[in-house]
Design a protein around this nucleic acid. Sequence first.
DNA 1: CGGCTTTCTGGGATCGATCCCAGAAAGCTG
DNA 2: CAGCTTTCTGGGATCGATCCCAGAAAGCCG
Lengths: 345, 345
Amino acid sequence: MTNGGRPTIADVAAAAGVSRSTASRAMAGSGYVSPATRERVWAAARRLAFEPNELARSLRVGASSAVGVVLPDVGSAFYAAVLKAAQEVLEAAGYHVLVVNTERTAARERAELQTLRSKRVVGLLLSSYGGYEDVGVPTVFFDDVVPGAGIAGVALDNGAGLRLLVDHLVRDHGHRHIAYIGPPETNEEGQAPRIFVGRERLEAFRSAVGDAGLPLPARFIRTSDERGFLEGARAAAGELLRLNERPTAIVAGTDVLALGTLETARELGVRVPEDLALVSFDEPPYAHLIDPPVTSLDRHDAELGRRAAELLVGALRRGADGSRPAQTVRVPLELRVRRSCGCPL
Amino acid sequence: MTNGGRPTIADVAAAAGVSRSTASRAMAGSGYVSPATRERVWAAARRLAFEPNELARSLRVGASSAVGVVLPDVGSAFYAAVLKAAQEVLEAAGYHVLVVNTERTAARERAELQTLRSKRVVGLLLSSYGGYEDVGVPTVFFDDVVPGAGIAGVALDNGAGLRLLVDHLVRDHGHRHIAYIGPPETNEEGQAPRIFVGRERLEAFRSAVGDAGLPLPARFIRTSDERGFLEGARAAAGELLRLNERPTAIVAGTDVLALGTLETARELGVRVPEDLALVSFDEPPYAHLIDPPVTSLDRHDAELGRRAAELLVGALRRGADGSRPAQTVRVPLELRVRRSCGCPL
DNA sequence: CGGCTTTCTGGGATCGATCCCAGAAAGCTG
DNA sequence: CAGCTTTCTGGGATCGATCCCAGAAAGCCG
């Protein structure tokens, strides 16, 4: 009994008067064991408070029961919600969850993927920031998807979402001067993240505005890093609001950016929604209690996490080998109309 | 090379023309290895893209390099922030982080602690919901602390915090009818969580009000589960606001409860802060953008996580054996005065 | 009851990395 | 150069659970 004072299967076997093999079979419920001995082994295990050493088990079996979840930022409400939902599904399916944080950095992502690999995770849920390399285990991408890589991807329907926002501003409020503040299109290494949430949203904004037959001057497009919390957003919003010909509406590609814009507008004495309509892609926490309540897209964060986890679990069950081509699932978004767009509520 | 196609140390050794022992020493940098062979081994390892199998290493060494972090709810902003800060410290110190979610449930907590034990984590950061049993590894409690257990505890200074809130209402605004809505004092099994964040805050509220020489009718005290999100809060607030002799101020023991109270007040046409002052123990996300901005305590969530992680890392470095008595560190809180208390801003 | 399948059990090898120890090689000293 | 320490290397055992396989025990059938 050298395992840090903890009993091993050998101790259990001895206590039950059987061999390790038999004890192992009895505990795992595999192979032939007579009911009587099984009972004896179980009793011994209970008595000794035996807990199998997962490390040894995993080593022998050649794979752990751990799944890695790679997040750009656990601190953000979005990723926290995704994580929570994913974790529920994974634990229900018998997997343990190893969470790592990349701090929205490709370098950290690479390092973390490396350690996950050495921990022999059997699968991966990954929101990439550009550091992705094939880890050699079934991988489901979420939020930011590397097209064709991994066994599947789950992302928000960025295109449809931005169209909802722009159309609402144009059709229901008659705006013709709409600006956009979005997340950056590249990561800290200057590479574009893969499916490019940022780029996708920007393109979607462009085509939505174009399809509405509206002009889109270059100065109406800004991107800002979300990493610096509100500061970047404030700076970008400031530039936009100090323009000679100010936009009458702003679409924010992210909740943090929307809130930063809101703050800046206040500071500059620009009233929302009277002087400026504001809509946000992401729903800020407690959006309805904010002044003014922010019109935004309900994102179903949990749904995204759940779907991703389910895809992974399904693949692991089937013994996925990445043979079938990776497909990207799109999670739909709903417009939640509140006051910041100018709707009377 | 049977390790899922991945090279093992034996492969590296063979490629470098040395024994496994030597290869191991070269990689680990321990014991005697001549510079020349070390270089050869490293080269071979690089060439083969060797990654040590953490499972095997941990098994042999008798301990993993993983630390467990047990949270009641990853989805909550508070715990997410704590996790993020703790993770930073732990990873910097070379530990991997295993996150588990107890869903604010003693039963889940017990189950999760069990699996963490079988994964041979070397340490634990634990916010208990009552399911705690000694896991046999150095444990630092945070937020809700089991007195005397583990090697240390880090908690908010609930007493001082509530005094700040009550004193502000009494001294600066002259309130004499102050009610309290707090989190429950027991968990789902009817047991009190250990240090009893809920109980501690309630007691602190009681004595702060008592010390101010104010009466405190029993009907001014409500507790409500935070698990049901805003619903419980709304119900409790509703009861309070429909009283014949309504309180003139409410202290919420939690941000969710404050926001629920705010919603209910709106629905009932009670204006905050004109008809009702509201202060919150926890700071809601983007408290300053809420209508009205919520006066609350700045919690330094990250500080709490960082301190807890640092205490654990320190103990692990020193080879803690729980010999010295566990001490509870209190993280200070600051009052952030905003509009909901009635201050003109 | 002999022969045959099915059930049950234990011995030994195995997963991959580390550690102990013995022995070889090299370096140093008088 | 003998004698000693220090440096360096490889063989084998080890961590704890599982798996393969051989062989024993039990059950079944004509």
